[in-house]
Design a protein around this nucleic acid. Structure first.
Length: 110
DNA sequence: TCGCTGACCCAGG
DNA sequence: CCCTGGGCCAGCG
């Protein structure tokens, strides 16, 4: 990690728009770290949830909030934050990826 | 240096 | 839908 994989990951997470979500694998790919979805999870766990990092917009490939091992991992908080942004969950606690997945195609993103 | 342990993902059966 | 197996990697004893 010449420049810190965590930083690369956070840079991508910061760009996920309000009301949209990205999967762990998607974030990894956008960060230039294909095949390293797990690393994204570890990075977010290590982040501790800074006020300015939209960590709650990262969900797993099934459209669910990934279960934490840490009992204080704030899974419910993540769901509340998303619902607060207009994201709707179904009975099984899943959201529609086709509807909410972030599609980073705007060239002028900085 | 080794071993273990995770906010994951995907193809198969 | 469930389960398996393989791929991924940093941090801490």
């Amino acid at each position: 990690m010449l420049i810190g994989v965590h930083r690369l990951i956070y840079d991508v997470v910061y760009r996920i728009p309000h009301g949209k979500v990205a999967t762990y694998g998607q974030v990894a790919a956008l960060a230039g770290l294909p095949q390293r979805a797990r690393l994204v999870g570890y990075a977010l766990a290590a982040a501790g949830g800074p006020e300015d990092l939209p960590w709650h917009r990262v969900v797993n490939a099934k459209g669910e909030i990934s279960p934490r091992s840490d009992p204080d991992g704030h899974e419910d908080l993540q769901r509340r934050l998303l619902e607060n942004e207009g994201v709707v969950f179904d009975r099984k606690g899943r959201l529609s990826l086709p509807a909410y997945r972030w599609n980073p195609q705007s060239p002028r993103n900085r």
